[in-house]
Computed example of a mutant assay.
Amino acid sequence: MIDGDSSGEIAAPLPSAWALVRVSGPSMSPTVRSGDRLLARRVRAGGRVRPGDVVLARFPARPELLVVKRVRRTVEGGHWVEGDNPFVADDSRAFGAAVVVGRVVGRLWPRPGRLPAAPPSALP
């Protein structure tokens, strides 16, 4: 969830080049946890996103939902994104391809720094 984000437009871009993100929920645990604050940079349409990147994305089927997920691969219509926690499926397994709108640069709080690489089970 982005603080102050209330966009309902399909694949709406981030409101500015940088966004402060507050994580809500366990889907990216152990990489990030509920309550973590992340810094994300906007990705414009056609911007380069690679497998393994932690991103902000929207699902065309749920445009009001902005999620923090890890890119698994590029697919028709966008990217296949999944959380690092395999027991939570609020990702492409449930909603299909996602449109990436931002790339997470790092964690600001409570453990500042870059995010760790994907857990072995998170990438193909």
Rank of each mutant, 00 (worst) to 15 (best):
M1N: 05
I2D: 12
I2G: 06
I2L: 15
I2Y: 02
D3I: 15
D3H: 09
G4P: 11
G4N: 13
S6V: 11
S6G: 15
G8Y: 06
E9R: 14
I10T: 15
P13Q: 10
L14M: 13
L14R: 06
S16F: 07
S16C: 04
A17S: 10
A17R: 14
A17T: 13
W18H: 08
A19W: 03
L20S: 11
V21M: 10
R22P: 00
V23I: 13
V23S: 05
V23R: 03
S24Y: 04
G25I: 04
G25Y: 03
P26E: 13
S27E: 10
M28T: 05
S29P: 00
V32P: 04
R33D: 10
S34G: 15
G35S: 10
G35N: 08
L38K: 10
L39G: 09
A40H: 06
R44T: 11
R44H: 08
V49R: 02
R50P: 00
R50Y: 07
G52E: 11
A57L: 03
P60N: 09
A61N: 00
R62Y: 01
P63I: 05
L65C: 00
L66P: 01
V67P: 00
V67Q: 02
K69M: 07
R72W: 07
R73L: 03
V75D: 11
V75Y: 09
E76N: 10
G77E: 12
G77Q: 12
G78D: 09
H79E: 04
W80L: 12
W80E: 14
V81C: 11
E82N: 01
E82K: 05
G83C: 10
F87Q: 14
V88R: 07
V88C: 01
V88Y: 12
A89K: 13
D90N: 14
D91E: 08
A94Q: 14
F95W: 15
F95I: 01
G96E: 05
A98R: 03
A98K: 01
V99T: 15
V100N: 04
V104W: 06
V105M: 13
V105L: 13
G106V: 02
R107D: 04
W109R: 03
W109K: 00
P110S: 05
P110E: 02
P110Y: 03
P110Q: 03
R111S: 10
R111G: 00
R111F: 08
R111V: 11
L115V: 12
L115R: 09
P116T: 10
A118H: 03
A118V: 06
P119Y: 04
P119R: 14
A122G: 15
L123K: 08
L123M: 15
